[in-house]
Design a binder for these strands. Structure first.
Lengths: 143, 143
DNA sequence: TGCACACCCTGAAGTGACTACAGGGTCAAG
DNA sequence: CTTGACCCTGTAGTCACTTCAGGGTGTGCA
């Protein structure tokens, strides 16, 4: 099949497919006489795998590691488990961060319930005075 | 004060301060004879405001809008409220997305509890077969 | 036969919010 | 008079794409 059909099967754009090829996630396919890429069932499976990992917010590095493990089928899957556990840790950490953020945001928001002038608005006062603390490093790759 | 002191007061790097200046978030300060930037109390307040907004994961666009509103102090603060409510909405949406993600991840993870070969590992099978659905557009600017 | 139109190709540049680096200038202390 | 901490500009790199410019290919229809 051509790249458009592959992209449709994996629910992504053709640009993304070409990008994955350049990024080394998807193997370079054969070309026909017109230099068009020509894909088979293996490519569909691989691309679906990649898109599923991305839907789970894994980085290309994490995905590359999983793909590498898949290509040594005799290896033990302990590393796969570790990788997934680490990723679940990232997601948990980000949920925790965002939950704390939400508390801070509603704190700030509470400071203005009425329509008044910007000059007196408690929200802006709050945003000037708030102390963000030093703990705001990003601890996961999830934004 | 010079840029290093300003950065320290706002808990960011001097590169970030210069970046905010180029991005139009922070006004260009005066320069001394040696072409060093020279800041005052107003800059500290403004930069703290920006850093606090960033700690709440607002985009530069959102911050620019808030700064614009601050600079017209007679205006009603209804727009400020709207902006903050919208941002709280983004955070809520992202927490929701990540929570669903976590469920999917633990579903996948559950498929391999034992040490076996990669070829038989249920996790990789799951990642190949999983159907991510079409609803995976990012709906917020939070990653 | 001519042509419109959907699809394919490459390579470069843009996104957001920085970070890092190269290659220089300034200034106070020892 | 030199060391080291600080400052300057400008460019490129990060991540996972998206968009664009400028072309080539292939099919259906008048």
């Amino acid at each position: 099949m051509k790249i458009g059909e592959l992209a449709q099967l994996a629910r992504c754009t053709v640009e993304t497919v070409r990008y994955y090829e350049k990024a080394g996630l998807l193997a370079m396919p054969e070309r026909n006489a017109a230099n068009y890429r020509h894909y088979g069932a293996g490519h569909v499976e691989r691309l679906r795998f990649i898109r599923n990992c991305r839907a789970l917010d894994m980085t290309h590095e994490e995905i590359r590691a999983l793909l590498g493990l898949m290509d040594t089928p005799a290896a033990a899957c302990g590393e796969v488990n570790q990788l997934l556990d680490a990723h679940i840790g990232h997601v948990d950490a980000r949920i925790q961060e965002l939950t704390e953020l939400r508390v801070q945001l509603t704190d700030v928001r509470r400071q203005c319930q009425s329509e008044q002038s910007v000059a007196a608005c408690g929200i802006l006062q709050g945003l000037v005075q708030m102390d963000a603390g030093e703990k705001n490093g990003r601890h996961t790759h999830l934004g």
